[in-house]
Design a binder for these strands. Structure first.
Length: 348
DNA sequence: AAGTGTTGCAACCGCGCGAAG
DNA sequence: TCTTCGCGCGGTTGCAACACT
């Protein structure tokens, strides 16, 4: 049985907001606040809108000090750095950019920043380092790879028209590509066009180790990560957002031999390392190094949603050029690995 | 000038989580 | 302990504006 709808869909207005609706909502909230109940809000004001819609309109548009468009290079850097380190946690990223909303950043990333990044990649590839055109062995229909879609949309870098990580995500969803590691016989099934897969690959390039279950696999160095007092032991995507910011900003060392195995579960999130193999400074390395004490985090951890809110001052943000170069290096390596693995698959 | 494709952005949707009862 | 409900999030869609042919 499905979830009950939050409002009567038949009697709510959808689509663009009129100036009158905006004015009503804005003046009410400025006078009375939201009352902690968005669902009831539209009825109080007399708006035929869903509460969720009101909330979205307020947060993304009507709220004071909202900035639209015109992202600066500094903001680009922040977005890039945070995307590399935490992925598409737009709300967290937005918390680092005053006046920006998660929706804004998400749109900006999807429509412009990726292009910017890949535009640079293309330019670089045209000038110098050029990914060799891949020799894609033709596979029959039982094969693992659809060579036509690969060669046109992904492999042939001359024709890359999509963007990183879109060039990875653009792979047809039905095409689940086993990913053959160069360094071992492990095989990664289920490479689909989602962020997780992309970031798995990115992390793989970083030198991490994956198990076959496709759970998160990295083992953060126990002594260098501040774990929250509620004993999170699995630093996977699902609980990343609950980590204190020290977990992001402390000097974390990725290691496959040092297990943080608090309860016999030794997993973590590779993206939390302080610096990846390509020299992208993801986090501040001169932050408190003694952060494994939960009490330490209490002094700097903010409240619920503001836990990340002041991180910007702690995040080390290299210049955009070097970030791009480093990311492009990552992308190039990814392509190289995929190329290698396609050419020399080691079927189990 | 008209038709078509692309881009950028606002808004919607569905799901997971946590609080409250 | 279970259920319900609202919030917040990330992904997706729809559409107007713009660019290109």
């Amino acid at each position: 049985m499905g979830r009950a709808p939050c409002c009567d869909k038949a009697n709510v207005k959808k689509g663009p907001w009129s100036p009158e609706e905006d004015a009503k909502l804005k003046s009410y909230i400025e006078k009375h606040g939201t009352g902690g109940n968005w669902i009831a809000l539209p009825q109080k004001i007399g708006l035929k809108r869903c509460g969720k819609s009101c909330r979205l309109r307020w947060l993304n548009y009507l709220r004071p000090n909202i900035k639209h468009g015109g992202f600066s290079e500094e903001e680009d850097r922040i977005i890039l750095s945070l995307y590399v380190s935490i992925g598409s946690r737009w709300s967290i990223i937005a918390a680092q950019l005053p006046g920006r909303t998660d929706n804004d950043i998400k749109n900006y990333w999807n429509t412009r920043l990726k292009k910017k990044l890949l535009g640079k990649q293309r330019r670089d590839q045209q000038h110098g380092r050029k990914t060799s055109s891949l020799i894609v062995k033709q596979e029959d229909n039982n094969g693992l790879v659809d060579p036509s879609s690969f060669s046109s949309s992904f492999i042939n870098s001359n024709q890359i028209s999509s963007y990183w990580p879109h060039q990875l995500t653009n792979l047809p969803s039905a095409m689940s590509i086993p990913y053959y590691s160069n360094s071992s016989s492990e095989v990664f099934h289920g490479f689909n066009n989602d962020h997780t897969s992309i970031r798995r690959l990115l992390t793989k390039v970083n030198g991490g180790h994956y198990d076959h279950s496709l759970n998160t696999q990295f083992i953060p160095h126990h002594n260098n990560i501040a774990y929250p007092s509620n004993n999170i032991t699995q630093l996977d995507d699902s609980n990343l957002s609950t980590l204190p910011r020290e977990a992001m900003t402390s000097t974390c060392e990725m290691t496959s031999s040092t297990h943080y195995d608090h309860e016999g579960v030794g997993v973590g999130m590779g993206m939390l390392d302080g610096q990846n193999n390509h020299g992208i400074n993801l986090v501040n390395n001169n932050n408190n190094t003694n952060t494994n004490d939960a009490s330490t985090s209490d002094t700097t951890t903010c409240g619920k949603s503001s836990g990340w809110g002041e991180m910007s001052s702690l995040v080390s943000l290299p210049n955009l050029e070097s970030d791009c170069n480093a990311l492009i290096q990552v992308i190039g390596d990814l392509e190289g690995q995929v190329e290698e693995n396609l050419r020399y698959p080691t079927h189990l």
